[in-house]
Simulated assay, not measured.
Amino acid sequence: MSNGEKDNAVSFEEAMDKLEQIVAKLERGDVPLEKAIELFQDGMALSHLCGTKLEQVERKIETLLEDNGSFVKKPFQPATDEREN
């Protein structure tokens, strides 16, 4: 199975779960250096996978607005967090 096929076989939720497990192991600090490096590399790959999946979903999300009896597709615009202002 190619790397791309593996990426498609893993759901976003599964990738996040695996990433959280890796982070927990690394935070404990009781992993040998070689294993820590391997976990870090796996975590980076999972992080990239999650980011890619989020970008794909964001591109698919469209807001339908009614405009004079017809619907107009507009790209998804994430809401800004008002607490940041």
Rank of each mutant, 00 (worst) to 15 (best):
M1I: 09
M1Q: 12
S2Y: 04
N3W: 09
N3H: 13
N3E: 14
G4I: 08
G4C: 06
E5D: 14
E5N: 13
K6L: 13
D7A: 11
D7Q: 15
N8W: 06
A9C: 04
V10I: 15
S11P: 03
A15H: 08
M16H: 07
M16I: 08
D17S: 11
D17M: 03
D17P: 02
K18N: 06
K18L: 11
L19P: 00
L19R: 12
L19H: 10
L19K: 08
Q21V: 01
Q21C: 02
Q21A: 10
Q21I: 00
I22L: 05
V23K: 02
V23C: 00
V23W: 00
V23L: 01
A24I: 01
K25L: 08
L26V: 03
E27T: 03
E27P: 01
R28P: 00
R28G: 07
R28H: 07
G29H: 02
G29S: 07
G29W: 01
P32S: 07
L33H: 12
L33N: 12
L33R: 13
E34D: 15
E34Q: 15
E34L: 13
K35F: 01
K35T: 14
K35G: 00
I37Y: 04
I37R: 09
L39Q: 11
Q41D: 13
D42K: 14
G43I: 00
M44W: 07
L46Y: 04
L46T: 00
S47V: 00
S47W: 03
S47T: 13
L49C: 07
L49I: 04
L49K: 11
L49P: 03
C50H: 01
C50I: 15
G51S: 08
G51H: 06
G51I: 01
T52D: 12
T52A: 09
T52Q: 13
T52M: 06
K53F: 10
K53G: 10
K53L: 09
K53S: 12
K53Y: 08
L54S: 04
L54Y: 02
E55N: 08
E55T: 05
Q56V: 04
Q56L: 10
V57Y: 11
E58R: 12
R59N: 08
K60R: 13
K60I: 02
K60W: 02
K60P: 00
I61S: 02
E62F: 08
T63D: 14
L64Y: 07
L65M: 08
E66L: 08
E66F: 00
E66S: 05
D67W: 05
D67K: 13
N68G: 06
N68D: 14
G69M: 02
G69A: 03
S70W: 04
S70I: 11
F71A: 06
F71E: 14
V72D: 06
V72M: 10
K73P: 03
K74A: 09
K74S: 11
P75Q: 04
P75W: 11
P75H: 10
F76Y: 15
F76M: 05
F76R: 09
F76Q: 10
Q77K: 14
Q77N: 12
Q77S: 12
P78H: 05
P78Y: 07
A79F: 04
T80P: 00
D81Q: 12
R83H: 11
R83L: 06
R83V: 03
N85K: 10
N85H: 06
